[in-house]
Design a protein around this nucleic acid. Structure first.
Lengths: 226, 226
DNA sequence: CAAATATAATAGTAATACTTTTATTTTTGA
DNA sequence: TCAAAAATAAAAGTATTACTATTATATTTG
């Protein structure tokens, strides 16, 4: 498994970047430090000038990799979901039924652990960025065009995988896609609430978003009221 | 009821604005046209210069009402949730149990109808803005400070109301707050998906987000697996 | 080692998100 | 009703953003 992982190249839709940041050490530093900087100052205050300073390189060099900070966010989002998808496939392929969906929910909702297979990417911090900034990647006027161009395929594929697990467990449940998309969004949202709006969530140090989502999903699909 | 509604002034936390836009016709025009303009061009492209042109007034005059476009978004969000809360109180006060929660879910998740009691506000378009832009109002670095200043009280109060209805129905259910916040967020999210990501939702012209959320909530709280 | 490629430095641009100043118009209350 | 106060409008200015373009200098590669 470690062998497999180290051979894996997480794939991101090609049109997201101008030059593949994995192809050079500057590219890797751009990605590495963009994660740290966005986490520190937030996506709104983040720009390529500040990132240039952080990596002791020039703004204009970053533009040869990404055409805008929006595209960089799309890259980070796709990378993250691709990494999650890999874990999903790996950790659930030998499971079936309830156990499979149970594990899948864990993977998409658990607090992220550092993965030493990708030296330049801090997955723990990237997960925080996804919690805070992911929805900004699609809540834009350009969403339909960018969706057509395939920028969200990996994210959607994870939802399809969850949907199929739900349907396998209960073929009569009518809202498998909506429930699958809700698993992902509400996991991220509950993590956000526990950090910033404690009074409107039950999640805290003792109660995990995973526990809430599992309870939600299994009660829903196992006990359909006609 | 009409009488009540027309006497009602929707309340927004005072610190959100510099000068109350309800207090002048310019203020009302600012709010009215900000809704139309944000809907047309999106929040990122929206600015006070363009809004000034739209209302045939000056940028600097708008700054006497709102210190930034972010604050204006907070205002629109608070106004919307205050309006929803009013409907919630009015339309559920004589109901109990399942019926009460059922109606409450309808109110927060149904497609918005125009409310003729607020001449200068197009609630149908405002609802679209909430679907597209609401999360940008809190997914910021300033969220904790702004939360302390009370900018999100109305939104949180709606979640409390839903939580209390859930707890009344099933006092043993452990995740009433998380479920309540999920009702709101997933309603908005499913509306967004049906407009932009049809493949990852079951909602469309025939299946409403309301139907999905009702099924989700009642199956969850009525059939708790121990 | 020469050519190609990548990176860095510098400068420039149009737009953004404001602030400030001054002028004009409208409201108000004595 | 008129003078003062308040509101609005116009204009100009500023620092920053989100880039593009140009040129120079390193680095890689065939």
């Amino acid at each position: 498994m470690d062998r497999l992982l180290s051979n894996l190249k997480i794939t991101v839709p090609e049109k997201i970047y101008i030059k593949d940041p994995e192809s050079s050490s500057l590219g890797k530093r751009i990605v590495e430090h963009s994660i740290l900087l966005i986490n520190n100052i937030g996506f709104e205050a983040f720009n390529f000038k500040k990132l240039g300073t952080a990596i002791e390189s020039n703004e204009s060099s970053i533009y040869r990799y990404f055409e805008s900070k929006h595209k960089l966010l799309l890259y980070l989002s796709s990378w993250y979901w691709s990494w999650i998808e890999y874990q999903l496939v790996l950790e659930t392929h030998n499971l079936t039924g309830n156990e499979k969906l149970n594990k899948a929910i864990e993977i998409v909702s658990r607090p992220t652990q550092q993965d030493s297979n990708f030296m330049h990417i801090n997955e723990v911090i990237l997960n925080k960025i996804i919690i805070n900034e992911n929805s900004k990647s699609y809540l834009t006027k350009e969403v339909d065009q960018e969706n057509k161009e395939g920028y969200f395929v990996i994210y959607k594929r994870i939802v399809y995988r969850l949907r199929d697990m739900i349907t396998a467990l209960n073929p009569n449940y009518q809202y498998a896609s909506s429930l699958a998309s809700t698993i992902i969004e509400s996991s991220l949202h509950q993590h956000y609430l526990k950090d910033h709006f404690k009074s409107i969530t039950d999640c805290d140090e003792n109660v995990s978003p995973t526990a809430f989502v599992k309870n939600l999903v299994f009660n829903t699909i196992n006990n359909q009221i006609a």
